Amino acid sequence: MARAGLTTERLVKAGAELADEVGFDQVTVSALARRFGVKVASLYSHVKSSHDLKTGIALLALGELADRAAEALAGRAGKDALAAFANAYRDYAREHPGRYDAARFRLDPETAAASAGVRHAQMTRAILRGYDLTEPEQTHAVRLLGSVCHGYVSLEAAGGFSHSAPDSQESWAWVVDSLDALLRGRPLS
């Protein structure tokens, strides 16, 4: 019987909110039980462990991020698609730092294959169809885009760009322009 209206979905959503407030690494079943004012044992019929809870949060975050990226990409191609995709990730990370970290949580292969992570890869490859890349360059480019976006977002979230000029938005635009130039095979300026 559900206590306090608890469901797996409600707990995962509350866990995601908690991750945004205190950091994904601080999310535990105990912390969630305190949030709901219930005993830890009350949650175990809905989540098996903190790892199970974190997996649920990761899946939620991957789905939200994929939905946001898909919406941003609709009707766009080339550099516009690249910028929309990159901005969707950066904006999500800024608005939901704990969830963004959760999206990087290591999932077991079966769970990962059934997650929205597959949609992310498909969208990245769709963007890259606007560039003249063959394999293995396309796979390299998928990894490059993920690395650059995640690296920039992580450094920015840690305050790495807050004390110097130009501002981080100007640098971000330069990074996206540079990625586009690189992918088009143009020399960087």
Rank of each mutant, 00 (worst) to 15 (best):
V29G: 08
D101A: 15
D25Y: 05
G37A: 09
S49Y: 08
A121S: 10
A93N: 00
L59R: 11
R94K: 13
E95K: 13
H46A: 12
R119Y: 03
V27E: 04
L65V: 06
T28K: 05
T55R: 14
Q26C: 06
T28D: 06
A83Y: 09
I127Q: 02
A102F: 02
R99M: 13
K79R: 15
R76P: 07
S50A: 11
R106C: 00
M123L: 12
A93H: 01
A86K: 02
K48M: 08
D108K: 11
E135N: 11
L73T: 08
E135H: 12
R129D: 15
D67M: 02
L107H: 05
A103C: 06
A61C: 09
E71S: 12
R104L: 14
A72L: 04
D132F: 04
T55N: 06
Y131A: 07
N87T: 12
A121D: 12
A70V: 00
T55V: 15
G37K: 11
Y131H: 09
P97Q: 08
Y131G: 06
L128M: 09
F105Q: 03
L60W: 02
Y44N: 12
R35Y: 11
F85M: 12
S49K: 05
A84M: 11
K39M: 08
K54C: 08
D108Q: 11
T28E: 09
I57E: 05
L53Y: 06
H46C: 08
L62K: 03
A58P: 07
H51G: 06
S45V: 13
D108N: 14
V38K: 00
V118Q: 11
G37D: 10
D67S: 13
L32M: 09
G63R: 12
A113I: 09
